[in-house]
Design a protein around this nucleic acid. Structure first.
Lengths: 157, 157
DNA sequence: ACAAATCTGTTATAATGTTACAATCCCGTT
DNA sequence: AACGGGATTGTAACATTATAACAGATTTGT
């Protein structure tokens, strides 16, 4: 598979994605607590994005349903440590597709089926970064998202 | 001035920006109604972004303060017709810096002073678009945003 | 075992955005 | 000028997304 192939659109062994993410989390010595684990599991179900409240509504542990801060804390943690990404356009979250090798990611978002394909790519448009550098701007984070209709949905699937 | 120079960071005659935007709106034959005019005026005050409710709170006409839908309708209209942009990372809006020649814009966002510099640039990272094209994705809109600290704010201004 | 740091539970509230429907205004045609 | 259809606005209620604040519990390093 090519480096920047968007996994989400390809047939693949998705359980591998989950394995990789978990392994990666452990290797980093992160504290994957109960809620973080559960949230990550939900996100790792597939390559769709989930809103915080969709996650919250499905979160549950021994019959206990947590409050919003619990979901947001877990999400913040996962995003901060590169196990998940926030999709700004959707106010939603996806599991990182390549937590072992994620430097800078862009996202291809299908409006129809909500698949979010992660693409490892250089941060932002080169022009944008060049201009930022020119004016002495200290870039900390970048958002790269393309929204449209995926090939499957164009064909009415 | 170079094509892709970010106006927001440069000394410039800002009244020109407003003139251009208004001229542009009229040339397109758009109906710049009362609220649209007022919202656009607020956005054109400078190159900062404003949240919908910040705009709403400042909106007023003959002592009448409108409700949220009024602000959102005006913003949607302005965005749809290229007179303003939505900044996804901030859930906020800026006036378009070059409404006469805006094809595809990226944004440099300073966390400190909230300046949003618009940069005309090719849409997204080439890799991201190439991958999208490869998988037959029909791209409709792209988000390109870089957040960080501008040169002024780095120097404690 | 202790203190410090981190994480969780809980309540409340803030901020952002939308639905739905009635009333009004604008514009082209009679 | 009167009419009719489409666009715009007024208004109330509500939905969704996110955070503040603080107490209690758990984990970690020493």
């Amino acid at each position: 598979m090519e480096k920047s192939e968007p996994l989400a659109f390809l047939e693949h062994d998705h359980s591998q994605c989950r394995q990789t993410a978990l392994k990666c989390a452990n290797n980093q010595g992160l504290r994957l607590t109960k809620w973080r684990q559960l949230v990550l599991d939900l996100l790792l179900e597939d390559h769709r994005s989930m809103g915080a409240y969709e996650i919250l509504n499905r979160l549950e542990c021994n019959g206990v349903k947590p409050q919003p801060p619990t979901a947001y804390r877990a999400l913040d943690f996962l995003v901060e440590h590169g196990l998940a990404h926030r999709i700004e356009k959707l106010n939603a979250y996806v599991a990182c597709a390549r937590p072992d090798a994620c430097q800078s990611a862009g996202f291809i978002i299908c409006k129809e089926c909500n698949i979010v394909a992660e693409v490892e790519c250089s941060p932002s448009s080169p022009e944008l970064l060049r201009v930022a550098a020119n004016v002495g701007f200290d870039a900390e984070s970048t958002v790269m998202e393309v929204e449209g209709i995926c090939s499957n949905c164009q064909n009415g699937n």
